[in-house]
Design a protein around this nucleic acid. Structure first.
Lengths: 202, 202
DNA sequence: AATTGATTAGTACATTTGTTCTAAATCGAA
DNA sequence: TTCGATTTAGAACAAATGTACTAATCAATT
């Protein structure tokens, strides 16, 4: 594998283990057994490594959304499946989710990109719910602003389940996935109609 | 005011503005117009300042919980009021909520204290819900594990609404409080009985 | 007034960090 | 094989950081 990719790989491992604060370009180079000069030949600035890793995460998330939209999406399980598919990606790039505010301060462009992404996603999710209402899967007697809070709740869970787990039960791998899948399910289960609930339970 | 308190005050302001990474003991001292030596006379290690600020937050949160338990707590609004009372405290010490993982890495004792706090609080909340079920305010047909996810959802919202707001709508003061009060309300509104819902709406 | 302890300023030092620079080594095409 | 470009190592530098140290100042008590 070429050096540039190895730098990204090593940096990801170190950032995930130790956070971004205590991992320096020298540490990454030492871990790989290359010189600092060589590392900075491939990435002029240390922050460029973080940007590259964020872009990799972003691309993988986009791919998942694309996949979700490609297949049938007019089922409540679609959203749950999507959430579940994101778990390994979130875990792979966990330092980004755990240390996002620090990253945002160091690399403002990342913060800006992310806020724009969230805006788009929120609209998408809201339109999912409305489509489900049309199909009689979702309750129609839910006021719009309540539906809006549901979107917020989903984003809170999606972005911070990892941080929460880190500070509480510290579940590992499959167990964590099961627990937080349940949390997601619990979020919109109350809003399903009888019909939707039948489709949903399995 | 004595120097020690002024250090804490200045550090809090700077941490809230700029995060913990870029704020050094020298910055704090310079901001106050005192010498670095003087600052380190009052706080041997820079991290001691963070510990002191965390303890202040912790004490204020404890006071709120104590207050909630002192007055009538067998009402769903009690929890909502509690959430609302925490908003200004969360905002005052916002750097702790925004940068908790970084703080946890720098000062492991803070992380340890917090995880223990969360465990206690989770049990308290769960017993609230069970009490409400006994009183016919909360639905009884909710399986225990779903009730458990509700607790998780509440903690996710309580700990990360600030981070979420920072990355999305960036609502200010009262507006943020109103929006996230709504999110909290939306969380357990679906679990209220008819009776509970009547008591709740106001 | 003298003394003692607390507070403060200012300097100094070792370490770390990001980055640059120079020169060597390696590689690929002609 | 040669030659130019790419890649690499290693040294060097300036800036920043935590914190220790020394001496001065201040405040209160005897």
């Amino acid at each position: 594998m070429d050096t540039k990719s190895r730098i990204l790989e090593t940096a990801l491992a170190l950032y995930n283990e130790q956070g971004i604060q205590s991992v320096t370009s020298r540490h990454i180079a030492a871990e790989m057994g290359i010189s600092p000069g060589n590392l900075h030949y491939h990435f002029r600035h240390t922050d460029d490594i973080i940007v590259a890793l964020y872009e990799a995460l972003s691309a993988q998330m986009d791919a998942l959304v694309f996949e979700m939209e490609r297949i049938e999406n007019a089922r409540p399980e679609a959203l749950l499946d999507f959430a579940e598919h994101t778990f390994p990606v979130v875990f792979k790039y966990r330092f980004i989710f755990l240390h996002f505010p620090e990253i945002g301060l160091r690399v403002p462009s990342v913060k800006k990109q992310y806020t724009e992404l969230v805006k788009r996603r929120q609209k998408e999710f809201l339109s999912f719910f409305k489509a489900w209402q049309e199909k009689g899967i979702f309750r129609k007697d839910v006021p719009p602003q309540i539906l809006q809070t549901l979107v917020t709740q989903i984003f809170l869970a999606g972005d911070y389940w990892l941080s929460h787990n880190e500070l509480t039960a510290r579940l590992k791998g499959k167990e964590a996935a099961r627990a937080y899948r349940q949390v997601f399910a619990g979020l919109f289960w109350p809003y399903l109609t009888e019909k939707g609930r039948k489709k949903f339970s399995r």
